[in-house]
């Protein structure tokens, strides 16, 4: 009943997973008055609990991946993930470096890949608009990250459904 309002007010969470800040600046540029993403009702909330779209930039360093997973799992469904920039999509020039695995989709499911180094605001807006179409289709079932980090006992992502959490591959770092 309220599905059609999903794309009218998508709130954004922006996470920098070890990016060079090139893509971050472009994201902020598209939120700023020139491109004015607020005309679509888009707000940069900075809080996973109230946002619908996760914009990830950067090649996901080993330090940042557990935060990424934690933030992802704190977002309420329906939610979409947009990987911004080529590093985020595949690892880019950092692929196979000692502190980087390849791309964000090893950790969380990604819905839209936006290429470019750095992606331009037009591309980003285009990617977000495509993500909105996906967001409208999504169900409210729980979406799990592909891996969990840290101690499982300490990790209360699914406090009610610990069983479900156990099925996810778990890495201790």
């Amino acid at each position: 009943m309220f599905e059609k309002f999903r794309k009218k007010s998508p709130w954004i969470l922006h996470y920098n997973a070890g990016s060079c800040n090139g893509c971050d600046i472009e994201i902020l540029a598209s939120l700023a008055p020139k491109y004015d993403l607020e005309r679509f009702g888009i707000i940069n909330t900075g809080n996973p609990k109230q946002s619908d779209i996760l914009l990830v930039t950067g090649p996901v360093t080993l330090k940042s991946r557990e935060r990424l997973v934690e933030l992802y799992s704190q977002m309420p469904e329906p939610k979409v993930v947009v990987a911004i920039g080529v590093c985020t999509c595949t690892g880019g020039v950092f692929r196979k470096m000692y502190n980087v695995k390849a791309g964000v989709d090893r950790y969380v499911p990604v819905d839209v890949y936006v290429p470019g180094c750095a992606s331009s605001p037009d591309q980003i807006i285009d990617g977000v608009v495509q993500a909105l179409a996906i967001l409208e289709e999504k169900s409210k079932d729980i979406e799990k990250p592909k891996r969990l980090f840290g101690e499982l006992t300490n990790n209360s992502i699914f406090t009610n459904r610990r069983e479900m959490a156990k099925k996810i591959k778990h890495e201790k770092n």
């Binding site: 557990e66 935060r67 934690e70 704190q74 729980i142 840290g150 300490n154 209360s156 459904r161």
Partner: peptide, 12 residues
């Protein structure tokens, strides 16, 4: 209702 942890910027 699902429970979540408090927001700590992703820190555990």
């Amino acid at each position: 209702v699902d429970r979540v942890k408090e927001y700590h910027c992703g820190e555990q």
